[in-house]
């Protein structure tokens, strides 16, 4: 099988094979009587086993579409998504259903994703049942163990979703995903609907389970602070394209792309006034149209707004010396 070769400087161990290899992924929504709208444009990245990769960006940047494409809830129009040796884009029907076991998802709203008539025990057993894993007794104990790991002991097994708090429900949703021992778990804003103190608990439990099970996370994040805390690698998406990617500590402390810098600086900073980041306020709106030519971010960019090069040439996503990829003609010019 030919390997897709592109620069991946954020590679963890140089010799390890990636668990997920997304290459030149493209997806567009057609608009009635108009041209198609690209939600994902030439997105390429790799995830290595045991990593946590965070995807950040404003609403409409394509992060949810990316998650749904990887889970094959939608069929991307071009590109490949390789999970190990299998290209998920080419799969369909039974073969796809079989592979789904290796991929799990935790949604933002735990209430909507749990059948209100099933008990906690049944909810966590169900995915095992669906994928014909183990005997009935075996399934029971696996489910109970998983729940216990997530701090939901025996007293919770017979409860219904409505008898649980938001954080407990989300833990049930996580148990449902992790009980299948997936290779990749997509976490789509898993803590956005939870209270602050509960968010901390859910993040910590997710991390503990990762250490224990060795699962890999793709974390679609609304909360930048949570992404910074939780992830090893960050992908910054703008209008369906990766504008910057690299190790989380580097991206967050010293972003190279002006969009990453603005995004990070805009996040509310719960620190005393003296230590706070200076806020960069962007012009325009997140759902802004992609310009016909030039850098997609140029119309809102504090750096390239008036620069001819930015207005006329699309910057490539190029590797930097410190092992990142940045799509900017003037990287690092805007710092936080």
């Amino acid at each position: 099988m030919p390997k897709v070769s592109h620069a991946h400087a954020e590679t963890e161990p140089a010799d390890a094979a990636p668990l997920l290899d997304v290459a030149h992924l493209h997806h567009s929504y057609s608009r009635r009587g108009g041209a198609g709208y690209d939600v994902l444009k030439d997105v390429s990245f790799q995830i290595f086993p045991g990593q946590s990769v965070g995807v950040v960006g404003e609403s409409g940047c394509g992060k949810s579409t990316l998650a749904r494409a990887i889970l094959r809830l939608i069929s991307p129009h071009a590109g490949s998504i390789r999970l190990g040796e299998t290209d998920l884009v080419r799969l369909s029907g039974r073969a796809l259903r079989h592979e789904r076991r290796r991929l799990q998802m935790v949604f933002q709203d735990p209430f909507g994703s749990l059948d209100p008539r099933m008990t906690v025990q049944q909810l966590v057993e169900q995915p095992l049942h669906v994928h014909h894993i183990g005997e009935k007794k075996d399934r029971r104990s696996r489910a109970a163990n998983m729940l216990a790991d997530l701090g939901l002991g025996e007293t919770f097994l017979d409860r219904l979703p409505k008898q649980l708090s938001g954080g407990q429900r989300q833990r049930v949703a996580i148990a449902r995903a992790l009980v299948l021992d997936p290779e990749l778990t997509v976490l789509d804003e898993p803590i956005s609907a939870l209270d602050v103190s509960v968010q901390a608990q859910v993040l910590t439990l997710l991390r503990e389970e990762q250490r224990k099970l060795g699962t890999t996370y793709l974390f679609i994040a609304h909360d930048l602070a949570a992404a910074e805390y939780f992830c090893d690698t960050i992908l910054v998406l703008y209008l369906g394209q990766i504008v910057e990617s690299g190790p989380a500590t580097q991206v967050f402390t010293d972003p190279q792309h002006p969009y990453s810098a603005s995004l990070i600086s805009a996040a509310p900073d719960p620190r005393p006034a003296g230590k706070r980041r200076e806020r960069i306020v962007l012009r325009g709106e997140p759902q802004a149209q992609r310009p016909e030519r030039g850098c997609p971010f140029a119309p809102r960019c504090p750096v390239g707004f008036e620069r001819e090069k930015c207005r006329s040439e699309v910057p490539d996503l190029t590797p930097t010396d410190d092992g990142r990829r940045v799509a900017c003609h003037y990287p690092g010019e805007l710092s936080i």
Binding site: A200, A226, E228
Partner: peptide, 24 residues
């Protein structure tokens, strides 16, 4: 104090673990 300790941004900064408040 406990609310502040549960903020990921503060934990990330201190490279510490998040703390959460037990119970509800």
């Amino acid at each position: 104090a406990a609310l502040l300790d549960s903020l990921p941004s503060r934990a990330a900064e201190a490279h510490g673990e998040l703390k959460w408040i037990p119970g509800s």
